[in-house]
Design a protein around this nucleic acid. Structure first.
Lengths: 201, 201
DNA sequence: TGCAAAACTTCAATGGATGAAAACAATTAG
DNA sequence: CTAATTGTTTTCATCCATTGAAGTTTTGCA
C-alpha cells in the first residue's frame, strides 16, 4: 500500500518545520528565534513542534539518522579485500560529500547550516554529542565487519581517524577559506592518523 | 597584600555551591535537582548561582580551567629531546591521574562524578564541548612547542590521540569494570593512534 | 456511515536563565 | 573613625523551552 494521506501530511509538516526553523535561524540567529515563531511559520502549535523534534537544537540535525545509515551501509558493503583504513576513509569522504550538498538543500544552504552549527555553542555541543554517538555505532559496526579486530582497536581506529580529521579541520578554519582548502586539511589530518603519530618525530 | 575577606568569602560561596550541587546531583539526580535547591543548600539566592557558574551543567566542571592549565604546563615543560608523541602521552596520563583523584574530592567522589557525567546527556554534551575546546588549545600549544610542526599536523595529532583514547575507553565501558581495565584499554587505544591505523590491516 | 487510532491544539505549570534596581558589605581615602 | 566608593547579593519581573494532561479534529478502516 502506498503512503496514506496521514503519512504525507506528517512529512509535509516536518518539512515545513525544518524550513521555517532554518530560515529563521539564518535571518535572526538561533537564540533570537523562538519556538513560537517557528511554529507559527510552519502553521502548527508550539506543542506540535515537540512531537517532531525533541528540542530546538534538534531541527538543525534533522538528517542525522540518514547520515548514520549511509555510513553504516558503506561499512556493511565493504569489499572483501578492503582494509580497515580503506573503509573508514570511504565513510569519511562520503560524509563530507553529503555534508556540503544535502538533498533539497542547495549547496549554499548546506554550507550556511554548517556555519550556523559552528558559531552557536548550543548547536556545537549537540553536534559533538551526535558525532560521538555515531562514532560508537561505527566502532561496533567496524568490529562486526572485521571480527578479528578487537572492539578496543576498532573504536580506537574510528576515534583516531575522525578525531584527527575533526581537529585538523577545525583548528585551521578561516573566514576566507574555500571548500578545497578544508578538504585538503581534512586529507592531511587523515594521513597523520593513518600513518601514526610516531611519524611526526 | 593577602587576600581580603571579600575574596575569601567568594571562595567559600563557590565551594559551597559546588559541594551542594554535587551532593544533590548524586542523591536525587541531575534533572531532578533544581537550582533553587542548590542555592538553598549553599545559602545564597538562585540569582547568585549565576554569578559563579554560567549554567547548571557548569558546576560539575568547576575544575576545567585548572585541568587545562596543567595540560598546558606539561606541554611547555617538554624536554628538548622529547617527541611529539611523548609529550602528548604524558598529558593524557596526567589528565587521567587528575580525573580520578581530584583535590578535595576523594577518589570515590571523583569516580562518581565521572559516572554522573557519563549518564547525563546534558553533561555528556557539555563535557564533549569542553574537551573539544581544550583540544583546540592543546593543538595550538603543540604547534608552538614544535614550530616545525604544521598546525594541521599538530591538530591531527592531538585529535587523533585523544579521539582514539576517548572512543577506545567509551566503547569498552562496562558496569563491573575496574580502573585498571579502563586504563588498559586507554593505553591500547593510544597505541593504535601512535602506530597508525594502517597497522590494523 | 460510524468507530478507533493518530495527530493536533489548548491550557497550565515547571524551571533555567537574564536584566535592572535596590540593599548590603567590604575597602579605601580623608 | 566616618564617608565615599566599589563589589556582591538579593529581590523582582520576565522570557522562553519543555512537558503533562485533557479535550478536539482528522484520517483510516470496518
Amino acid at each position: 500500500m502506498v503512503e496514506g494521506l496521514r503519512e504525507r501530511k506528517k512529512q509535509r509538516t516536518r518539512q515545513a518545520l525544518i524550513e521555517a526553523a532554518l530560515r529563521l535561524f539564518q535571518e535572526k540567529g538561533f537564540e533570537e528565534t523562538t519556538l513560537a515563531e517557528i511554529a507559527e511559520q510552519a502553521d502548527v502549535s508550539t506543542r506540535t513542534f515537540f512531537s517532531y523534534f525533541a528540542s530546538k537544537e534538534d531541527v538543525v540535525f534533522y538528517d542525522t539518522a540518514a547520515r548514520l545509515e549511509l555510513a553504516l551501509r558503506v561499512m556493511e558493503g565493504r569489499r572483501p579485500d578492503e582494509t580497515v583504513t580503506g573503509v573508514l576513509m570511504r565513510i569519511v569522504e562520503e560524509s563530507f560529500e553529503q555534508a556540503v550538498s544535502y538533498q533539497d538543500l542547495t549547496s549554499e544552504d548546506a554550507v550556511l547550516r554548517v556555519r550556523l552549527i559552528l558559531t552557536e555553542p548550543a548547536l556545537q555541543a549537540r553536534a559533538l554529542l551526535l558525532l560521538f554517538d555515531t562514532q560508537l555505532k561505527l566502532a561496533e559496526a567496524l568490529h562486526e565487519a572485521f571480527p578479528e579486530l578487537a572492539l578496543v582497536d576498532a573504536a580506537a581506529a574510528v576515534g583516531g581517524l575522525i578525531g584527527a580529521v575533526k581537529l585538523g579541520v577545525m583548528a585551521t578554519l578561516e573566514e576566507e577559506q574555500s571548500l578545497g582548502d578544508v578538504l585538503a586539511n581534512a586529507r592531511r589530518a587523515a594521513e597523520v592518523a593513518i600513518s601514526g603519530l610516531h611519524t611526526l618525530g
